[in-house]
Design a protein around this nucleic acid. Sequence first.
DNA 1: ACAGTTTCCCGTAAATGC
DNA 2: TGCATTTACGGGAAACTG
Lengths: 421, 421
Amino acid sequence: EKQPCMPTHPQKPLIIKTGVQFTTKVRLLVKLPEVDYQLKVKTTFDKDLPPGRVNRQFFILTNNTKAMDIEDSSNGCLSVEFRHLLKEKKYISGTKGNEGLLSVTEELHSLSFEAHFVVQGLAIDLETCSLPLVVISNVCQLPGGWASVMWYNLLTDEPRNLGFFGNPPRATWSQLSEVLSWQFSTFAGRGLDREQLTMLGEKLLGQEASYGDCQVSWPKFSKENIPGKPFSFWMWLDSILELIRKHLLPVWNDNYIMGFVSKEMERVLLKDRGSGTFLLRFSESHLGGITFTWVEYGDNGEAKFNSVEPYTKSRLSALPFADIIRDYKVISDGVVPENPLKFLYPDIPKDEAFGRLYNSPQNKVAPYLSASLIPISELRSNIDATPPCQSPEPPMTPGQFHMLSQDLCLDFDTMSPPYSE
Amino acid sequence: EKQPCMPTHPQKPLIIKTGVQFTTKVRLLVKLPEVDYQLKVKTTFDKDLPPGRVNRQFFILTNNTKAMDIEDSSNGCLSVEFRHLLKEKKYISGTKGNEGLLSVTEELHSLSFEAHFVVQGLAIDLETCSLPLVVISNVCQLPGGWASVMWYNLLTDEPRNLGFFGNPPRATWSQLSEVLSWQFSTFAGRGLDREQLTMLGEKLLGQEASYGDCQVSWPKFSKENIPGKPFSFWMWLDSILELIRKHLLPVWNDNYIMGFVSKEMERVLLKDRGSGTFLLRFSESHLGGITFTWVEYGDNGEAKFNSVEPYTKSRLSALPFADIIRDYKVISDGVVPENPLKFLYPDIPKDEAFGRLYNSPQNKVAPYLSASLIPISELRSNIDATPPCQSPEPPMTPGQFHMLSQDLCLDFDTMSPPYSE
DNA sequence: ACAGTTTCCCGTAAATGC
DNA sequence: TGCATTTACGGGAAACTG
């Protein structure tokens, strides 16, 4: 009868940060003219948790009871918005750490909404509650929290299984890959294509990824570090999403960032392309980095590949990426510096691809010489060539991407119209 | 009998920001063995303001009463530290805006400390209060608040004249210049020399500054904008102080920044110096900017002066200033780029002055080409020469700087040992 | 409309807890 | 001790409020 929604962090519903306002909206879906103006809704945080499941406890700071209004927009239903802060109670000592293995971003909570009223002598109690929530205390926990929200909503239809992460189910790669692509289309405006998803699948699962029914465990997705790296798969992918969102949006949306290509595949692609052909790829070794790799040919006709040290958010906020591509120069032993980047793979002239995005040099301040920052690499004789490439990967299951992603969108939309409302 | 101290913002005592912790320390200067462990001190914010003077009201969030302890360090006196937040009360409507002309950073407040005890049947009430305080709500108000604190403590010995800014006295330039130099020595580690102070005096007062007994009004110091500029003298100077503190500390402390030189004086100094002689100067037209000006000679032997667009904090956080000096290049019409900076005025070879501060290029990440940012100016044919220089200014009163500044330091020290304690 | 002021809250750094 | 988590608060931006 009621339909609870619960927006929080912009674009990341079902995550609440302590000390930060959030809003909830409850709608009464049936119309009861008699009770229009007397219906009050009370919100409670973690109203009745299963007794064993006491980890952190929070409370709502502001007044938690509010009268419903007739919704201006739609069908004349009642609705109410809450807007309050959440503060942590001090631990009830002793009860802490029921499982010990679960991190705070795996700890699920809920908001309950109650209303009591009387129609024609009949006392009616209504109660509903939100989908499981994650409570964080710092934005640095947002990626972890969002991983939990995604995993939960991808893999269960239960409205309130707060113990979900006690034994989380696995996802098939085909399920997961759709969600990942949907993440990119939601947050960066363009989803992932088949090749990009294939590379991600291989990174996560090895070669058999392409079969689609391969299973991914929750720890592998978000808890365990990628072998040899100090971060998990999702942390890595989310750092890229953030990099795109803050520094690469137009380039990403124009589809100029191949992004997810293995170093081997990169060479296969660039080999035999025109000298100065380059492609853009995200760093696999560092969080939130992007680099370009270009091909050149030696005197003997042998292909040589070079990549710059990946650019991260700090560099990119000093200098927009398109300008980096425009101005980048390599200087080898006193020769005239030259920009080695000529064609975006496969063969788009650099300026044709990025010209629209170049920033005109700053407006000159009258008596001053304006100075721009130019990214320069110094090339010392010959760079050691890396081993020859591996075989390209088999093709991936063609996605029913559109269908699935629509389902997901609907799902998430319903549960949470964001902040703006 | 008691000596109240009141640290707040690191290094900027007597300024309290709402919602941020601050500490106060009260000491009982006489030793009263009988009451050692029963003495409680109560802190009150704005305990008894003159009735007309009701602007903003605040209250202390935490428990405002605390027992004094025997001070571990010194003479066995009692002391107590408070550590609490200050939150604004909603305005008592109607009583707002008694003068209207005063800004929030001119609104003075105070903390009162009370203690009551009984010795040998004699009831004793002690009370003391802090020097006037400024309450701000955002760090962007810190410069304005600090100006008030400086002006007050420079120009009055009254312990609690909360209406001070209703009719603030003027300062003589000799008083003010000592305080300014003291600011630089406190916050940047090196004070201002006579030439620098002369230039500042001229900027503020015109040519007669050098007489020292010239008067500076409070509005001229901190409230009114410099003619033709959108900021006041103090805002401008404080922005430079911040720039030094965050980005130029070693360069400033090595005395390599002349800093305050008029454009005219600059030319007088550089003229007839070796080609490539440069000096470092703060921007007068923008907040928190530093530029270098160098001299070169045309084919006809005529001196040509160039300055870069001033570097501000955003640029300097992308690239440290010493590296900018090392790497800066001018490229004119396809010629090989060259660094025009050779000798720091008067004739110190660049690398001798700054070599110690150069950052070695980042550690190479194995397979990547590391890229550095190089600041480059493009020189298009000939830059228009600015009009010939004006006459140099008369010499300034030799400061009794050391004596005076020691007085000042003591003064401020007593009133406020910072945060750390 | 607007300027002075406050609130909001991200993101880094430091503190704290386990 | 080290890692997980929270607190602290500067700083930019938005919201407020006369």
